[in-house]
């Protein structure tokens, strides 16, 4: 039964080792964490490599020791000498405590302390340190609903895009984030790490991209049945292209006031990957939403909403939201 519904991707199985190699060099790498395209993600990657090298040297040597002892002291093989009373050695025990202490001390200083400041989502020094005075940063207000993203550009006529993010390359982008109903995470693996997006609260994040391209954005924390579809493509474009794109969006006749937002925020699974644009959203929508949620505003979920997805999609169509 399961077999029949299967698309024929078993054939990829044979390609697995090949893919491994190919992906390493391909531009659109599948190894998102190993191919950072943003300043923050790159810093994280570097710290990861330091950590792995330090830890792997200890763990690897220990693993080899275990294997070696297994070989050497195998009973009956007479490769090593037996000493059934040997159970203590001051020198060794000092080393056993000393080695991990030294490693942890080094990692604490070199990676934990430095890294926490370097990619601190609220003020990542890797980005803010070298901020060029002329390259003005872009602000984006991010609102997560059940289960869509709304990206508002306050500096651009309060225009907004849903489920798609466009940013200029090599330019710091500062996010303010909140959510309507439940908690999730904002995450673009190749550009910027995760930050919680919480209802009734405002968090911050920042990214600066280093390469043009399109990168996958993900709602990374479980936020309900529509999470898997709560995706957004992040387009990193040149400043000129960005300006051009913004002009186009700003002139869109489609706008959103608070009442319309209320409707937009109702539970909606973005199966059809819709990315509507809004030339203008109501001023102060972000703060208004924060206050409303703090005062108890909710967007409740219906019971059994996704028990049958086909049924749900029919409802969606009937409500003209498909």
């Amino acid at each position: 039964m399961l077999k029949k519904a299967k698309p024929g991707h078993w054939r990829y199985l044979a390609l697995a080792p090949l893919l491994l190699l190919l992906n390493g060099c391909a531009k659109h790498s599948a190894w998102w964490i190993f191919n950072p395209q943003g300043v923050g993600a790159k810093a994280s990657y570097d710290y990861m490599m330091i950590d792995v090298v330090v830890m792997l040297s200890i763990v690897g040597i220990t693993a080899l020791l275990i294997v070696w002892f297994m070989w050497k002291y195998h009973k009956g093989k007479n490769r090593g000498s037996y000493d059934g009373k040997w159970e203590h050695s001051n020198k060794l025990e000092v080393a056993f405590w000393g080695i991990p202490i030294a490693a942890v001390a080094f990692l604490s200083w070199a990676v934990a302390v430095h890294g926490s400041f370097a990619v601190n989502p609220y003020n990542p020094t890797v980005i803010t340190q070298h901020m060029k005075p002329k390259g003005d940063p872009i602000d984006i207000d991010v609102i997560a609903t059940d289960w869509q993203w709304l990206f508002i550009y306050p500096q651009f006529h309060n225009m907004a895009v849903a489920n798609e993010l466009v940013v200029p390359a090599h330019t710091p982008v500062f996010f303010k984030l909140t959510s309507t109903a439940v908690t999730t995470d904002f995450f673009v693996p190749q550009l910027v790490g995760m930050i919680d997006v919480m209802p009734g609260m405002r968090t911050k994040d920042a990214l600066e991209s280093s390469h043009l391209g399109t990168y996958q954005g993900i709602a990374a924390d479980y936020c309900g049945a529509g999470m898997s579809w709560m995706l957004f493509k992040t387009h990193v474009v040149s400043m000129a292209d960005f300006q051009h794109w913004a002009k186009g969006v700003e002139s869109s006749p489609n706008t959103m006031d608070y009442a319309q937002f209320n409707r937009f925020a109702e539970p909606y699974i973005n199966v059809h990957n819709k990315t509507p644009v809004y030339g203008h959203v109501e001023k102060g929508l972000f703060n208004h939403l924060l206050l409303e949620v703090m005062n108890g505003k909710k967007w409740p979920l219906p019971m059994f909403m996704t028990e049958n997805m086909f049924h749900y999609l029919k409802l969606q169509a009937a409500e003209h939201r498909a």
Binding site: I33, S44, M48, V52, M55, V59, G193, M194, D221
Partner: peptide, 20 residues
């Protein structure tokens, strides 16, 4: 292996990329 990866996760700069 669990210890090695745990030590990766315990560093915020790395954790942001692989948490969740």
């Amino acid at each position: 292996i669990g210890g090695l990866t745990g030590m990766m996760l315990s560093i915020p700069a790395i954790n942001y990329m692989v948490h969740n």
